[in-house]
Amino acid sequence: MDRPISEQRCGSLGGGQIVLRYSGMFNQSTVLSLGETCRWSLEATNARAAVRRKAFVVFVEMAQNIVHYARAVGADGVRVGTVELRIAESGQVTLSCSNPVSPDQVDRIRQKLDSVRMLDAEQIRRAYRHQLHDETPESDGISRGAGLGLLTLAREASAPIEYRIDYPSGKHAYPQFHLSVVIG
């Protein structure tokens, strides 16, 4: 079995209590039911309405990112990953995700994340607007430049996005990509 689910950990950024955590196979049905659970879980917290809305936006982007871009693993090529939603007493929400990625995509991912991490709010806004008008089709597996998805996460986040790439031991283990976004 080449599904390193047990090796997946989400980022350690932010604090708070876990209100939702899912680790396993991802497809669009998973996204929809998790999305519903995410909304429902957020409703039951003390997070402000604006924070809850942003958290849902980020949650869906993270989950769909796993569906689209996680390295397919196993003979049946399933996508696996982890998403986690935490809430602090202050009402601050932390969303994290992790998934295996292809070794040859690691440099591209680092490049994209590093470039977005350097932007301030106004630069993120401008990059988002620029990307919205860009008619160039995406040419490879991962989106061109810093895609709208990544910029959406950056836009909703109240601190720079945190990421980490681990290299689990094991002959068939893929690099693990971890991402964390703090909201509120």
Binding site: R53, F56, V57, V60, E61, Q64, L132, G147, L148, G149, L151, T152
Partner: peptide, 12 residues
């Protein structure tokens, strides 16, 4: 009420 990033471009 909500659209994801890939729908954004198409709505635009």
């Amino acid at each position: 009420k909500y659209f994801n990033s890939s729908s954004t471009k198409l709505i635009h």
